[in-house]
Design a protein around this nucleic acid. Structure first.
Lengths: 143, 143
DNA sequence: TTTTATTCCTACTAAATTGATAGAAAATTA
DNA sequence: TAATTTTCTATCAATTTAGTAGGAATAAAA
């Protein structure tokens, strides 16, 4: 039950972009160096964010990436759902409809549904703006 | 970010044992058939629960497994932590101390700590007794 | 005592996922 | 035209997940 590096690196990348959010495009290499993450690996992560228009990109000299919105307009949930594929804790909750044959009499389904809601609500309640400040907001994260 | 079959099957196995909790030992094959899970695979899961004394086992004819405690005395959290290895959403929160070099200035650590607490509190608030009844308790699971 | 039923133990394996790496094409600016 | 940067396609090693196989040990019953 782990958040993969894809999701974790994506959040760090978004925080980095928010902390250097001065209107200019920021080359991926700068972020990779600051975050100590391989540029090549970061590339595969940033491409997902870019294709979904969470970021604006520009090729060539002077190019790079910048935020498409204000830091407070990105929830961590939206970033993780994109990069992790889904935040559902069990695969039967991934789609719109639950096509598991056991669903109608499953003893554990309500528990997983409750957990699923808990996860999504938690991460949808945190924005990138909440994370850029150096303050420790841990108390706020505990419901 | 998925709960593996090990954890999910373990919970189903415990529910099955609770639903057939009449003092007799229950052979693993019976559970495997009812739950439609391979007996051989269930074996590897039940051995963890048995070694940790969550279950009482008896070999030979008339043998099998039965609960060591009342269903209401097993939290889902204790079962999942055992079978999943840990419920920590990031590896740096697995041990007693966080030995990640980035920990002291990590922007995301408080968020993961809050999430970690949320997960453990949620599953520690649900017992096997809560799951054996056919009623839909989903509202209770939403905090 | 033999048979039967069961857990317990060790080892193995296929498939999927994770976490990358490599090389080059396309675009943009200077 | 040169330099810089994103974008695209392909590949790959390590790890985890999910499951299988065979047999030894144990206990009860016939």
């Amino acid at each position: 039950m782990k958040i993969s590096t894809k999701g974790r690196y994506a959040v760090r990348l978004m925080i980095d972009l928010a902390e250097h959010n001065h209107g200019e495009y920021i080359p991926l290499m700068d972020i990779a160096k600051r975050q100590e993450i391989s540029e090549k690996y970061l590339e595969s992560i940033v491409s997902v964010l870019s294709k979904s228009n969470l970021l604006i990109s520009l090729r060539g000299k002077g190019g790079g990436y910048k935020l498409a919105k204000k830091p407070e307009d990105y929830t961590v949930g939206s970033i993780l759902r994109l990069t992790e594929g889904s935040l559902a804790p069990v695969s039967c909750l991934e789609g719109e409809v639950n096509d598991c044959a056991r669903a109608c009499h499953c003893r554990t389904l309500p528990m997983w549904e409750g957990f699923n809601k808990l996860i999504n609500d938690y991460f949808d309640g945190i924005t990138i703006a909440d994370l850029v400040s150096g303050d420790d907001y841990s108390d706020d994260y505990m419901i």
